[in-house]
């Protein structure tokens, strides 16, 4: 065999088959991955369509899909907003405390605790909120109801069990706190060392350094982190399903009432096991609504991340 021939001679058939099959195996895996991920919306849309259009047979005897979906979507948003409203300031404070204020060992202790807490399943948070937190908050709610009922947030008969949307939001806040605090710490750590030193050299106090150097560079990261946390909280199922004591079709801002709005995710989890026919289709369509909400939130959050050049 002349070398001149071998350059033009194809590689052995066995070798080419082997390469081609490896390549197609990978491509098939990629396609399955694509179909599985893109399919979520499709599967839900196809099977949930009857629920979107049905007039009878819906869960809770709802008049139509949107009559059912709107209060639940409100509940999901309200719980997530409350949860984030509690978690974000604390997360920022913790991140600043860890880097600027508390001794190293304390910061490290909290970091390790956060690592464990980030791994705890949501059903355990639900159990904790329901059995430990709710009963302790009930007297607080009673006090709030007695003294602050002029404020619409604390109006109405306070819950005796403590299983209100505020309790759920509190548990949600604890749940998203580890991730958000870690994120804040990361973006604050990106403050250029030289900027910090320049501010300190000018005689700035710690707080002034934070306000002038750390916060401006970290702001966008905190916002997108909060968005990601919101995406998680809005779709969280077990905590709201276990903690909130819901009333059907309720839309209201009351934080301490014995009747509370339910969330989409919790409603699905509570209703699905005993559902049939149109009810199932309705729940699938509700799932699609929740999917669209979290999808939008996640996309926007990632846009912000990319726009600010950060990595989350």
């Amino acid at each position: 065999m002349k070398p001149a021939d071998t350059l033009l001679t194809p590689r052995p058939a066995r070798e080419r088959v082997r390469d081609a099959s490896a390549r197609s195996a990978v491509t098939v895996a990629g396609l399955i991955g694509l179909v599985a991920l893109a399919g979520v919306a499709v599967f839900l849309g196809v099977e949930g369509w009857p629920g979107l259009t049905a007039r009878t047979g819906l869960p809770l005897q709802a008049a139509n899909f949107w009559a059912l979906a709107w209060p639940l979507a409100f509940g999901s948003f309200w719980a997530a907003v409350l949860g984030l409203g509690l978690a974000v300031p604390v997360a920022i404070g913790v991140a600043l405390a860890q880097t600027w204020y508390v001794p190293r060992w304390a910061g490290r202790f909290l970091g390790a605790t956060f690592d464990i807490l980030a791994a705890i399943p949501s059903v355990v948070y639900g159990l904790w909120g329901l059995m430990i937190i709710a009963p302790r908050l009930a007297p607080v709610y009673a006090w709030l109801g007695a003294h602050l009922s002029w404020c619409p947030l604390f109006a109405g008969p306070p819950s005796a069990s403590g299983r209100t949307i505020l309790t759920a939001a509190l548990v949600l806040a604890v749940m998203v706190l580890p991730v958000m605090a870690a994120l804040c710490r990361e973006v604050f750590a990106q403050t250029p060392r030289t900027t910090v030193e320049a501010a300190l050299a000018l005689g700035a106090t710690r707080w002034e350094v934070i306000r002038l150097a750390v916060w401006p560079t970290g702001k966008a990261g905190v916002v997108s982190g909060a968005m990601l946390g919101f995406g998680r909280a809005v779709g969280e199922t077990m905590v709201t399903a276990m903690v909130i004591s819901p009333a059907p079709f309720l839309v209201g801002f009351g934080l301490i009432n014995s009747t509370n709005p339910n969330t989409i995710a919790a409603f699905i989890a509570q209703t699905f096991p005993e559902s049939h026919g149109v009810e199932v289709a309705t729940l699938l369509a509700l799932g699609l609504v929740l999917f669209v909400i979290t999808f939008v939130v996640n996309v926007v959050a990632r846009r912000i991340v990319r726009a600010t050049g950060g990595r989350v």
Binding site: P3, A4, T6, L7, L8, P10, R11
Partner: peptide, 20 residues
């Protein structure tokens, strides 16, 4: 060209080129 054959000839497999 390696011994007269263009390495960028469409019939030539780059993998074969690298073996030579």
């Amino acid at each position: 060209r390696l011994d007269g054959i263009d390495l960028y000839d469409p019939r030539v497999d780059p993998v074969t080129v690298r073996r030579r």
